[in-house]
Design a protein around this nucleic acid. Structure first.
Length: 551
RNA sequence: GCGCCCGUAGCUCAGCCGGAUAGAGCAACAGCCUUCUAAGCUGUGGGUCAGUGGUUCGAAUCCACUCGGGCGUACCA
């Protein structure tokens, strides 16, 4: 952590002394331990300018290095000219009390303290319950929200929804048709109507309330209202089930009622960016290439296209003064966000604070069978069903375990499998195992609380390896938050679990014969528990105290 | 046609703002339970990083082209 900047510093001092140019170097943690704890590539970067072999440059730099020998035990030149630093174990063991003291806050950063961020996601219109495919965006957003908070942002969780327009009218007509069909099964159903069985449920509710009083009437508003309520309640209860609570539900219709949409049309036309063609208003978009087309913002019917309120909404968010605005969309919306950003930047708004995450689609399979997601035939795989099939933790974990940019193959059978095959359990089991140790520590634990613990007793390779991994946690959080990629935390926690399991296997924690060592190891186990717990919290999965042994 | 994303072990995927012998989980094979949960640990096998060319001291990573897959390319949202 602080060591990286320390190493950078002493190298730069040495460069100045040698009259070498000071270049931006990378200090990283080598994959192989024989290359030390930290590594600099500075010598290779200077070869061209200095016209000398990198290993010779490295030797000259090392010659002039001034450093604290109690922290750095060895410096070596390796390979093509890497300068490798080896850190004393004592430096690492000294950090354990800090982990324990910070506890649930270890890993939180103040880097973005005082900055405001807005995350908008889910944003499904209340025309149908959430389906399994929505899960990816929902779970990604949940973890990203946590990452943003851990990196210091003051976060607003926002949901943008639209309860007006064609879709809602179609919903109303669909419900109305199902209602009529209760009395007359030959009543026609709208051609593109919503096919799902939930429509029949809504119709049945209305029949219970109102009997046949709407039969044969032109009433639609009531059907619309009931349909919206039902769907929105369904969506919200699924989100609650997954532990997600939005701070703001931003209603698209407010953009109309407050005149924002009208204003933005005026702004566009004042800026000379619009023209009329075929009765519609078109927006001139900046084109990098010849074939790109202008887009309609107001239809010949006088209604705006979806682009316009989207632009108005983003301008609204910019005006609210966020330092960072994050949107999460599926890849099927990949094109529209580009248009939206182009449109509002052509009005002079600064879009640099807007960060759009586009995630690829999900394919569900059960073993080798693919699972149909299509809503066209009335049966779709609801997110609620997925949750009850495999459990919350598995849902959350599976949806975020891969980077957003790659296709996700969601194997329901694997997610459901309560065995060592299931990657969720590998992590959770490490936590449960530590809890087991603590339960067994008994009276040792009481002494532990009052003792000053000598962590320098931790000398085994498995102990030191574990500490090194644990101490990387804050950096991992920072990096995952910066790139908005929660799967990085999973990759990291896998290393933690792996190192813990090895430590567990080779270093017995509870040993009445050697209390000082037991205390030190208990402290280490507690640190590991804390980091797993903090990591799980970011991911949005639970930290089980015990997991039943398989038969 | 054009745009965006993807192509890495038998499978699912990390790694991608260039770095040392390309990694993990699952699957396969061989070991490890008288001591804190074996949902664990140790070891073995498995690769033309889709292909071709380029840039570089150095390319899975950057650039160009080709091939293959997904998603877009609405006066639907």
């Amino acid at each position: 952590m602080a060591l990286i900047s320390f190493i950078k510093n002493i190298i730069e001092k040495s460069l100045l002394e040698l009259n070498f140019p000071v270049k931006e170097q990378t200090i990283d943690i080598p994959k192989e331990e024989k290359f030390g704890d930290y590594s600099s590539n500075i010598a290779m970067l200077l070869t061209k300018e200095l016209k000398k072999a990198p290993r010779i440059i490295a030797a000259e730099i090392i010659e002039k290095l001034e450093y604290d020998k109690s922290r750095i035990s060895k410096i070596e030149i390796a390979g093509p000219g890497f300068i490798n630093f080896f850190i004393n174990d004592a430096f690492y063991t000294d950090e354990i009390p800090i982990v324990l003291e910070l506890g649930d806050n270890f890993g939180k950063s103040e880097k973005n303290k005082g900055k405001k961020a807005n995350l908008e996601w889910v944003s499904a219109n209340p025309t149908k319950p959430l389906h399994a495919g929505h899960g990816r965006q929902i779970c990604l957003g949940k973890s990203i929200a946590n990452l943003l908070e851990w990196s210091g942002f003051e976060l607003t969780r926002e949901y943008y929804y639209n309860d007006a327009g064609n879709q809602m009218t179609l919903l109303a007509k669909s419900v109305k048709a199902r209602y009529e069909q209760i009395f007359d099964e030959n009543y026609p159903f709208p051609e593109d109507g919503y096919q799902g069985n939930y429509i029949k449920d809504i119709a049945e509710v209305i029949r219970l309330e109102k009997g046949d009083s709407f039969r044969g009437t032109d009433e639609l508003d009531y059907f619309r209202k009931k349909g919206e309520e039902y769907n929105f309640e369904s969506i919200k209860s699924t989100l609650v089930e997954l532990g997600i609570k939005h701070d703001i539900f931003f209603n698209e219709s407010s953009l109309y009622s407050e005149g924002t949409i009208k204003n933005i049309i005026d702004e566009f036309s004042k800026a000379g960016l619009t023209y009329e063609k075929d009765g519609a208003i078109w927006l001139k978009l900046e084109k990098e290439q010849e074939h790109q087309k202008d887009k309609v913002i107001v239809k010949a019917s006088g209604e705006p296209t979806y682009r316009l309120p989207d632009m108005a909404y983003h301008i609204n968010k910019i005006k609210r003064g966020y330092d960072l605005i994050v949107d999460i969309f599926g890849s099927d919306h990949g094109e529209t966000y580009r248009e939206v950003l182009k449109g509002i930047s052509s009005l002079g708004y600064d879009t640099s604070g807007i960060n759009v995450i586009i995630h690829q689609m999900v394919t569900f399979k059960s073993g080798n069978e693919s699972v149909k997601m299509s809503g066209r035939f009335g049966t779709f795989y609801a997110l609620d069903d997925l949750i009850s099939d495999i459990g919350k933790d598995a849902v959350q974990f599976f949806f975020i375990m891969r980077s957003a940019g790659s296709h996700l193959d969601f194997d329901i059978e694997l997610a459901k499998d309560e065995s060592d095959k299931n990657p969720v359990y590998y992590l959770q089991y490490a936590h449960a195992r530590i809890c087991g140790i603590l339960r067994n520590a008994g009276e040792l634990m009481e002494d532990f609380e009052n003792k000053k613990i000598d962590f320098s007793l931790l000398k085994e390779k498995d102990e030191i390896d574990l500490i090194k991994i644990l101490l990387q946690f804050p950096l991992e959080v920072e990096s995952a938050a910066y790139s908005l990629e929660p799967h990085k935390i999973i990759t990291y926690l896998n290393q933690v679990a792996e190192n813990f399991h090895r430590f567990y296997r080779n270093c017995r924690v509870i040993n009445i014969e050697n209390k000082p060592l037991s205390f030190a190891r208990l402290g280490l186990a507690l640190s590991a528990k804390q980091i797993l717990k903090n990591g799980f919290h970011i991911l949005g999965i639970s930290a089980p105290e015990r997991m039943e042994k398989l038969p």
